[in-house]
Design a protein around this nucleic acid. Structure first.
Lengths: 137, 137
DNA sequence: TCTTGAACCTATAGTCGCTAGAGGGATTAG
DNA sequence: CTAATCCCTCTAGCGACTATAGGTTCAAGA
């Protein structure tokens, strides 16, 4: 039997976050002590570690809910889980692509700025005048 | 004289967003018509285009506030603006780095999954067992 | 001039995944 | 038995908007 604090220390998930996950339906409502405090078992610890891991990999809460639901039906084909992971991978790649374009444009703007005063600062001028940009954004 | 809708169409900033920027102090409170509707001039349009452009480049609102303040003092050295842009570039690069690690790990997990049922799905197993991961995250 | 419909107004709540705080009760070590 | 630490619920805040409700003003056509 673990208290919520024990669970928190063992999974590195903060106490309020555990309560939040309960509210979001990612973990089922815990048993309570006589004094109404949450008491957890080993299965809860594993479940929470799963959630933590998925969050670290950037899955959002609805995706995690689906993954948990799938993991309770070992007989189903795993195409569902694969699709969730692939979709997420696609989203991560899209974000990287966007950020890379941003990086490129910012690099260009920063490196072009050799002025001394704000008046001829390339950073400010580029923001004021879209025509100074290389790509659309 | 532009109405808020004119301004919106010309800058591609949505009407509620323009009001939000006014609330956040990025644009000064507009003059009003007799019937209390906002009326803008060319200077407001340029200011809003500047903001839009900075947002597209990922600057957050406090940074934009600073950039606007700087752009009104053309005599100041432009090191302040440069630093804001460089800081932002650094943040963008850090995000890219994080996402690339995620991408790598997700690729690995997805590509290892050749199971047919959830029971031996590598996606689910990797989430359940952190030891299957290559890097810490 | 009147009417209609589009555009405008304010104020409030919702998004996401937590995090922080207030104000109180439970547990446990000494 | 007491004090320190933990735990409880409830509410509000973050950032940058977006959506909705309920009402007012404007502009163009009849």
């Amino acid at each position: 039997m673990y208290s919520i604090g024990d669970l928190s220390r063992r999974t590195s998930v903060k106490v309020p976050t555990i309560r939040y996950y309960e509210q979001m339906g990612l973990i089922s409502a815990a048993h309570r002590s006589e004094g109404n405090q949450r008491r957890y078992e080993k299965a809860d610890l594993e479940r929470l570690a799963f959630i933590r891991h998925a969050r670290d990999l950037g899955f959002d809460i609805p995706a995690i809910r689906e993954l948990i639901a799938l993991s309770r039906h070992p007989d189903l084909p795993c195409a569902g889980a694969d699709r969730i992971a692939e979709d997420h991978l696609g989203a991560v790649r899209a974000k990287i692509e966007k950020l890379r374009k941003l990086e490129h444009e910012l690099e260009r703007i920063v490196s072009h700025c050799c002025g001394h005063s704000v008046e001829d600062c390339y950073v400010i001028r580029a923001l004021s005048d879209h025509a100074l940009c290389e790509a659309e954004h």
